[in-house]
């Protein structure tokens, strides 16, 4: 990864085992989740995670467009992950490139693994993920946001989907890589967990990991996902809290 680049590799891990932003190997970046951040969507969420800013909106169940995608026995889930032109250092050409199309596919499949699609035949549940500011881990931030947005839309599903990327930096397995770690790290492994079943519905990997390192990375990712899960539930409780302390959002 990035070995072809001529740039000098920064020191990613201090002798004390701390990362470039002072985090420990198993420490997440600061994460804030706001459910119901948008007004027109049936469900929505805004996620700020480290220097990532990601929005998700859910529309549906509603009529399927294009019509031929309609399924008689279940709802179809259509997911669109998109990055804003200004979300990265060098302007990105607007629209879905091949990376975004692949990510849209795997995220859609992850959600179809947990949403009770049989309940809404001949409809579409549309998930829109918009990355406004990117700093590594945007697909995981997108899954977290979309998951909260689905719950906010009242779509029945088996569970929320916390997601996080694990990687290898400075020879060590580390949780939740930020941009510099992703660019110069030795591996990147994003995943999404179904906490109730302990199973993974999204899993990708690129880089170099031995078998024991891979096992360690999976375990660390699952642990990270469980932490994120608690924050997702908290965001939803805040949105729907009643009484004097109820959240004022939207």
């Amino acid at each position: 990864m990035g070995s072809v680049g001529a740039k000098e590799v920064p020191v990613l891990l201090s002798p004390e085992g701390l990362r470039i932003d002072g985090r420990k190997l198993d420490e997440l970046r600061p994460l804030s989740i706001r459910a119901g951040a948008l007004h027109q969507a049936d469900g929505s969420a805004a996620v700020e995670w480290g220097a990532n800013k990601v929005l998700a909106a859910v529309y549906g169940p509603r009529e399927v467009h294009p019509r031929h995608l309609q399924q008689n026995h279940k709802a179809v889930i259509q997911c669109r992950y998109n990055m804003a032109a200004f979300s990265v250092d060098e302007r990105k050409r607007p629209g879905l490139d091949r990376r975004s199309q692949e990510i849209s596919k795997v995220i859609g499949e992850a959600f179809e693994s947990v949403v009770f699609v049989e309940e809404y035949p001949r409809t579409s549940i549309d998930i829109y993920i918009e990355v406004l500011q990117a700093n590594a881990g945007t697909r995981c931030a997108g899954v977290v946001a979309a998951s909260v947005a689905l719950a906010d839309a009242g779509i029945p599903m088996a569970d929320l989907l916390p997601a996080v990327a694990v990687g290898k930096v400075g020879g060590a397995i580390a949780l939740d890589l930020k941009k510099e770690e992703d660019n110069f790290g030795e591996a990147d492994l994003p995943m999404a967990l179904v906490p109730q079943s302990g199973r993974l519905v999204l899993l990708q990997m690129e880089g170099h990991l031995t078998e024991p390192e891979l096992a360690q990375a999976l375990d660390l990712g699952v642990k990270g996902c469980r932490e994120i899960y608690e924050q997702m539930k908290r965001a939803l409780r805040e949105r729907y809290a009643v009484g004097p302390t109820a959240g004022a959002s939207s």
Partner: peptide, 19 residues
């Protein structure tokens, strides 16, 4: 080394399945 992975389609794998 494991150099790449991809989970696809609708469904799930436990970490032990993956290992």
């Amino acid at each position: 080394h494991v150099v790449a992975m991809q989970k696809g389609l609708i469904g799930a794998f436990s970490p032990d399945d993956v290992k």
